[in-house]
């Protein structure tokens, strides 16, 4: 079996892992979505260093984009056989009653070949560090990290990697690099600093509506919300709302601007200390993820080889951005219509 490629520039908090395993690609790692077995295979085949999967009801996605335990085991085996790794997303917040089940599931996935976890709850982070000392723990975007003191807190709490806010520039990445030796991960997105913070500081969706998983998952004994694994976030912030002061004419508005795929920042981000780039999109078509992984694999390899300018990819990036936005628009309308149709 080919040794796994490793994300890490750091050893796990509780273990003395080697820095860069034999056979690993140099440079920053590409973390790609696997919303299905087919997507897992496509992402690995196109060169993802790490794929991430969500167990049914535990990862903030509709069930169509999550996987059964059997499928996760199969995806882990496929990844390992080709030198890649698999992370399991456990980034919903447990209910207090359900806490032990999260730990039990993590132990099972670790035994099945998962090399790490993406988590949100600080208590779960500590429990997994204790129970699975040599695993790699990523702090999910759902934790709402906003500054370098957060990074230091999570390093103390046992995390290996934090995901940085979309909005951060090179200077901020360099600042957090100086403040903590925690691994740094960024989404392959760029955005402007306006609008509502999401996720991590938002419960708008569940205030309006939510539906539990019970009919799909059997007998989970919790009550929902997207943050806790109910069927979905309705993307309230991306729908149109009427907004205005009392007594004035309202304007039609979205609550935040969409992020868009990024590229030009990659060389500077790597130089500043980013060790992992995350592509989101477990709910996207497999063909789109295949093309995106291939695209970013090339770009990251070029950066590792010393490229400082990725301008020659501009046309291809523009095309991918159009595909990304077109697909997303369809999904937002569907989600809000679905929410409106539910009985609260």
């Amino acid at each position: 079996m080919v040794p796994p490629r490793s994300l890490r520039s750091l050893p796990p908090k509780g273990a003395q892992a080697s820095l860069g395993r034999p056979g690993a690609r140099p440079g920053a790692k590409l973390l790609a979505p696997a919303g299905s077995l087919e997507m897992a295979h496509a992402a690995v085949d196109e060169g993802a260093d790490i794929i991430y999967v969500g167990p049914l009801g535990f990862s903030r996605r509709p069930y169509e984009s999550e996987m059964s335990d059997d499928a996760i085991r199969e995806a882990a085996a496929y990844a390992r056989s080709r030198g890649a790794e698999l992370r399991v997303v456990l980034n919903t917040f447990p209910t207090p009653y359900d806490f032990g089940r999260f730990v039990d599931k993590a132990l099972r996935y670790a035994a099945d070949g998962a090399s790490g976890f993406i988590v949100t709850d600080v208590g779960l982070l500590r429990a997994l560090r204790r129970e699975i000392p040599d695993t790699v723990l990523h702090v999910s975007i759902g934790s709402g990290i906003s500054n370098l003191a957060d990074a230091a807190f999570y390093r103390d709490a046992g995390a290996d990697v934090i995901i940085l806010p979309y909005r951060w520039d090179v200077a901020e990445i360099e600042a957090v690099r100086r403040a903590s030796d925690i691994g740094l991960e960024t989404f392959l997105f760029e955005t402007v600093q306006t609008g509502k913070l999401c996720p991590g500081k938002c419960i708008m969706s569940s205030y309006l509506r939510f539906r539990d998983w019970k009919e799909v998952e059997g007998n989970r004994d919790f009550h929902g919300s997207a943050n806790r694994g109910a069927k979905e976030c309705y993307r309230v912030c991306q729908a149109n709302w009427e907004f205005g002061a009392v007594g004035s004419d309202p304007v039609e508005i979205k609550l935040r601007r969409d992020a868009r795929l990024m590229l030009a920042q990659l060389p500077a981000f790597v130089a500043a200390g980013v060790s992992c780039f995350k592509l989101s999109g477990r709910e996207r078509p497999v063909g789109m993820i295949r093309d995106l992984v291939r695209f970013y694999r090339r770009a990251i390899d070029e950066v590792a080889a010393g490229a400082a300018d990725l301008g020659h990819h501009t046309a291809e990036l523009a095309e991918l951005r159009v595909r990304w936005v077109r697909e997303k628009a369809k999904r937002v309308d569907t989600l809000m219509d679905r929410a409106a149709s539910y009985v609260s």
């Binding site: 917040f93 447990p94 209910t95 207090p96 806490f99 949100t120 709850d121 600080v122 208590g123 779960l124 500590r126 429990a127 759902g142 934790s143 709402g144 709490a157 991590g200 419960i203 569940s206 919300s225 943050n227 806790r228």
Partner: peptide, 24 residues
Amino acid sequence: NLYTHETAKVLKDHGVTRVYPNPE
């Protein structure tokens, strides 16, 4: 983002004596 007693225990170690559980 306080959802669990286990997180409350971690925060107690940092001096937290009172928590406002998430409204959910």
